[in-house]
Amino acid sequence: MKISLFGQRNHLGVGTFFSELSDAFKKFYYIGKYIEEVDPFDLDKLKSAVAQSNLDDINIWFWQHPAIKSAKGFNICWAIFESDKLPQEYLANLYEYADLIWVPSLWASSRLYFL
């Protein structure tokens, strides 16, 4: 089993969430050794990570990406959206890709409207 975090370290909001969650996971003795960061913009690494995924893996995606459909394991989308409601089309697309949707704050989760 591995926990793959698909995102990119950068100074944007999503990059900050990605970096901080990845760093926090790596500090845990029992799961830190299973963490793998994958930059979806590095297509060779993305293809390799998806090809090597297993049914017992956990994949956390920091934005919707077509490769999610090919990744084996439990797929989680981290939905970052700066509004008071996630649009129905956006949610429908996330539900098509993911087994679970996370939102990064109480503010966002209290405003998550399901289909």
Rank of each mutant, 00 (worst) to 15 (best):
Lys2Ser: 04
Lys2Gln: 14
Ile3Cys: 01
Leu5Cys: 05
Leu5Gly: 02
Gly7Met: 11
Gly7Ser: 06
Gln8Lys: 14
Gln8Pro: 00
Gly13Thr: 14
Gly13Leu: 11
Val14Ala: 14
Gly15Asn: 05
Thr16Cys: 14
Thr16Asp: 02
Thr16Arg: 11
Phe18Arg: 02
Phe18Pro: 01
Phe18Val: 01
Glu20Asn: 12
Leu21Asn: 03
Leu21Ala: 00
Asp23Ala: 12
Ala24Thr: 00
Ala24Asn: 02
Lys26Gly: 03
Lys26Arg: 09
Lys26Gln: 08
Lys26Ser: 07
Lys26Trp: 05
Lys27His: 07
Phe28Ala: 04
Tyr30Met: 09
Ile31Leu: 04
Ile31Ser: 00
Ile31Gly: 00
Tyr34Glu: 02
Ile35Thr: 05
Ile35Leu: 13
Glu36Ser: 01
Glu37Ser: 03
Val38Glu: 01
Val38Cys: 04
Phe41Asp: 11
Asp42Ser: 12
Asp42Pro: 07
Leu43Asp: 13
Asp44Thr: 13
Lys45Thr: 00
Leu46Trp: 12
Ser48Cys: 10
Ala49Arg: 01
Val50Trp: 10
Ala51Trp: 12
Ser53Gly: 09
Ser53Val: 00
Asp57Glu: 09
Ile58Arg: 00
Asn59Phe: 04
Ile60Pro: 03
Trp61Gly: 05
Trp61Ala: 01
Pro66Met: 08
Ala67Phe: 13
Ile68Arg: 07
Lys69Ile: 12
Ala71Arg: 06
Lys72Ile: 04
Lys72Arg: 15
Phe74Thr: 11
Asn75Val: 01
Asn75His: 02
Ile76Pro: 00
Cys77Ala: 08
Trp78Lys: 08
Ala79Leu: 07
Ile80Glu: 11
Glu82Gln: 14
Glu82Asn: 11
Ser83Pro: 05
Asp84Trp: 02
Leu86Ile: 12
Leu86His: 13
Pro87Gln: 06
Pro87Tyr: 05
Leu91Met: 06
Leu94Met: 10
Leu94Pro: 08
Tyr95Gly: 11
Glu96Lys: 11
Tyr97Ile: 15
Tyr97Ser: 15
Ala98Val: 13
Leu100Trp: 10
Leu100Val: 06
Ile101Gly: 09
Ile101Tyr: 04
Trp102Cys: 10
Ser105Arg: 06
Ser105Ala: 02
Leu106Cys: 08
Ala108Gln: 08
Ala108Tyr: 06
Ser110Ile: 01
Tyr113Gly: 00
Tyr113Thr: 01
Phe114Asp: 05
Phe114Gly: 11
